[in-house]
Design a binder for these strands. Structure first.
Lengths: 343, 343
DNA sequence: CTGTTAGCGCCTTCAT
DNA sequence: ATGAAGGCGCTAACAG
């Protein structure tokens, strides 16, 4: 009963039916060149015997695995999960599955993951570079092997040699900060992430441009570049920041939803009123901002769509005859300022 | 330059070195039966030629893919992502990767995913059944094919035929509700999820037991079983619930962090003070509860650990000589009530 | 319409 | 210490 049954294969069906393996294979493929009656017999027998095709054998033979590798900096950031959902949704329609790996914000791990995908397990790769990633050679090496690659988010110049999809971080933050200014705020703080990360640099640039355009001085004291790579330390960093500030700002522009929420929490605990005394804006709009009281004004980033688009670019590469004529494609997605109670 | 180079394989190395494929294979395996000098030559040449082993060929030949399939009801629930992180962390040490699929809360999709894993792509499967899953046959069928399976969370009797890991939902909620009672609360509301889901049934049982034990009447009006399977509708359902209640409760026990947060948001907006007038408890403790103001008291569920343990059970099955002697193993993990400002 | 044959790239006896 | 050969399960080109 609990006998370890051997998997049934094409050969077994062929033998039972006294026909060749090739015919069985073709029949199961619904190849019209096989007589209908034979096809039916084969289907029936296959079902009866509990036949399941061997994906690995198929892949080896066909040269396709129908797997797509996805490398993200971390699992525990809703943004990346949303992107993965988008990718998954899109590629599933084309009969692909995704294999997700985390680079844990480390360039070394990113390289390792890439290499492990180089072993023929995946037909293509979608990657979001870490803040440490300053070179394109590891990616280029993959592309040279004929494996399609698409990048998303956090693409710095040096890494921009492949198809990629992103948002215009500088413009998004510019308009958010300008919105604060037009609301009459002047002492606007900026909270970003690690300086090395391109998206944070761009968001900082947008902040500076908006301030400069409106002739508002930028005070070092009001700038925080969080260095933490995990939740708990972010919290501490932000609390310390506000505790050490000489005069509280009248608005805070933050570069992630989490920074925004932690900022609101800290300020509320310090006794300030939001938005009466201080406005706060987050970045991402991944659900939490809406629940918080007061709900948080956010720059909404189309994460799910970013995944879908990245997947689309990849699938398109699959269908291109050869890479020689491949022109790099860059997709810039729209962001939107969602107004809520925190401003 | 952008020539589509063919992948280099063992044969290429063998030819270049004028030795056999077998020797190359063994050399790269660091097989001591190969002369050291040969081994070195092979390594050098392999590196020089940019050799990368073909994972698929390896898998076909060895019968192992080193892939583990994971099926979760949804991607956008931190709990499942945390479990996946735990699984990933554990299996990575044993040189496995995970392939995550979502059943989107549908039994049909769960079955489909299972079947697609049955095609030899994965060496084992970790699955969290949907609320719709009332049968074990689809899982049993996988097990019968010799593919190890481990389940986690939401295991009802009918589905409990495989190794699994869970928490004692009833006890956890019992103690949380009893805690509220001991704090002097009497009019305690319950907010759970779809009735069909075992974990919610158990959490409801715990609530009822605690109330009964302390002779507190249970009012239907104070009970809500949310039916929504996505965020937005949950919000509406909970708002409606409180808007239609005749007399507001003095405490609310909720079955997920999200329900808890939405409850707090709704109550705060209605003008109630938390915890002065109403206490709120969440379930999960996945980070948001700590940020909210007031911070939320939660039952902490060891999600990450649940993943690690599930992975461990699976890897152990790999190492067992045969399944005939396999005794089903059940792991019950500890929960903890984390006290914060909402109670 | 069906069968034969030759791979896909690697591993693994069995020889030598 | 190395080579030759068969096999993993399936696909596809070529015959008939």
């Amino acid at each position: 009963m609990t006998l370890k049954k051997k998997r049934v294969k094409l050969e077994d069906i062929a033998r039972k039916l006294n026909i060749s393996i090739a015919t069985v294979s073709r029949a199961l493929d619904e190849n019209p060149r096989v007589k209908l009656s034979t096809r039916e017999k084969v289907f029936k027998t296959a079902k009866m015997m509990g036949y399941m095709p061997n994906q690995i054998a198929k892949s080896l033979s066909s040269g396709k695995t129908n797997l797509i590798g996805v490398i993200i900096p971390r699992y525990d950031e809703s943004f990346f999960i949303e992107v993965c959902r988008g990718i998954d949704r899109y590629v599933r329609k084309h009969n692909y599955k995704i294999l997700i790996s985390s680079s844990r914000n480390s360039f070394e791990f990113e390289r390792e993951n890439l290499i492990s995908f180089e072993r023929g397990l995946v037909d293509g790769i979608i990657l979001s570079p870490t803040h440490e990633t300053e070179t394109f050679v590891h990616i280029k090496s993959i592309i040279n092997k004929g494996i399609p690659v698409v990048l998303f988010d956090n693409i710095r110049e040096e890494v921009s040699g492949a198809d990629h999809v992103l948002i215009e971080d500088d413009k998004a933050s510019f308009s958010a900060v300008e919105f604060l200014i037009k609301k009459g705020r002047k002492r606007i703080a900026f909270i970003g992430g690690i300086k090395e990360k391109k998206v944070f640099q761009d968001r900082y640039d947008g902040y500076k441009k908006a301030m400069t355009k409106h002739n508002i001085p930028i005070y070092e004291e009001l700038i925080l570049h969080c260095e933490s790579l995990d939740r708990e330390n972010e919290d501490t960093e932000i609390q310390d920041f506000f505790n050490n500030i000489s005069a509280i700002p009248d608005a805070v522009f933050t570069c992630t939803d989490n920074y925004g929420l932690l900022t609101m929490k800290t300020l509320l605990k310090m006794g300030y009123k939001i938005p009466e005394q201080i406005s706060v804006i987050g970045f991402g709009d991944l659900g939490l901002g809406e629940i918080f009281v007061p709900s948080m004004t956010c720059i909404a980033q189309p994460s799910f769509e970013m995944g879908e688009k990245a997947a689309e670019l990849l699938i398109n590469q699959f269908n291109e005859p050869n890479d020689v004529n491949h022109r790099k494609k860059v997709l810039k997605l729209k962001t939107e300022l969602i107004l809520r109670d925190s401003t």
